[in-house]
């Protein structure tokens, strides 16, 4: 176990190192200048600004400085926002994205589990087909299409909820629902398969033979065992949420990290792009690592040997 975790952590850092270097190289290759209206500045003025941000040093020097700073958790200073440092900016924006993400995951998983259980317990009935259809729609339809539809129906036409921006909890409802469609679909599909498998196992048969009632079988015996492997889908769910948050936050004008990232792409703000890229990467890699380790802890049948298998 310890050997496996060490190995995984080493790979994690290698991946992050590669991403950091790759991001750096790409940023250097980017066309355009990070300075808004660079054309208006005289050559001397530009020199002064470039000197200030260390953009005149040879690239290897910049690279080493950048990597050194990254190791300390310092993502540099934004070019666009009057000398705001990127780490503070990310922390400030993180709140909104975290609220949306958490709500989407909690809401999505609960609904997904309920749908999946109904489908498994009432297999091959209208209930089953209904929840399967919801799952297929959730997996297939991109979250931004959902987001746009929700916004149009509930905010623009019915005017029940705010169209966008962040005005308290109410503003988080629509974007959270849009983001939750993925988790709902994934959880529902997964729980259905797991439940069907568990329900056909011998100990459920034994419980039935002993005269346990339907409720006890479904919840006490089957559900708990079906729930364990759900941890494994957390990785893809987190990745999906991140992708979704980029567009959903933009559609609802939520001042979160995703919206900031998309905005920085348009303005060539290298520091923010590099910072958020690293943040996203660390976030996803750490989640996948935790999921893999957790899975080994929860289910002892999974052998985490150090081999290549």
């Amino acid at each position: 176990m310890a050997k496996y975790v060490t190995k995984r952590v080493i790979y994690m850092f290698l991946s992050l190192f590669l991403i950091a270097s790759f991001t750096f190289v790409l940023m250097k290759m980017l066309p355009g200048s990070p300075l808004a209206s660079a054309a208006k500045l005289s050559v001397e003025q530009r020199e002064v600004v470039y000197e200030k941000y260390g953009l005149n040093d040879p690239i290897p020097v910049q690279y080493i400085r950048y990597m050194g700073n990254l190791a300390k958790g310092d993502f540099g200073v934004s070019f666009q926002y009057k000398s705001a440092d990127v780490t503070t900016l990310i922390v400030k924006k993180l709140k909104y994205s975290a609220i949306l993400g958490t709500q989407a995951i909690v809401f999505g998983t609960i609904i997904g589990i309920v749908l999946g259980m109904i489908a498994a317990l009432k297999q091959n009935t209208v209930w089953d087909y209904g929840s399967t259809i919801i799952a297929i729609l959730g997996i297939s339809i991109p979250s931004f299409v959902f987001a746009v539809l929700l916004q149009y129906v509930f905010a623009v036409k019915l005017e029940w909820l705010p169209v966008g921006l962040w005005e308290g909890w109410k503003s988080s409802i629509l974007p959270s629902i849009a983001l939750a469609m993925g988790p709902i679909a994934i959880a529902a599909r997964f729980i259905r398969t797991e439940m069907i498998e568990v329900l056909s196992s011998d100990y459920i048969l034994l419980a039935k033979a002993k005269g346990a009632n339907w409720f006890e079988i479904a919840f006490k015996h089957a559900f708990r065992n079906a729930l364990i492997p759900l941890v494994t889908v957390l990785g893809p769910v987190a990745a999906g949420l991140l992708t979704g948050s980029l567009v959903v936050e933009q559609i609802f004008a939520v001042p979160g990290i995703g919206e900031q990232f998309v905005k920085s792409i348009a303005t060539n703000d290298f520091a923010i792009i590099m910072g958020t890229t690293m943040f996203f990467s660390v976030f996803l890699i750490v989640i996948i690592l935790i999921v893999d380790i957790l899975y080994g802890v929860i289910d002892p049948r999974i052998r985490l040997s150090g081999g290549s298998k």
Partner: peptide
């Protein structure tokens, strides 16, 4: 190492 890199990014 490559699989750790998020596609989106």
């Amino acid at each position: 190492v490559l699989i750790g890199i998020p596609t989106l990014v």
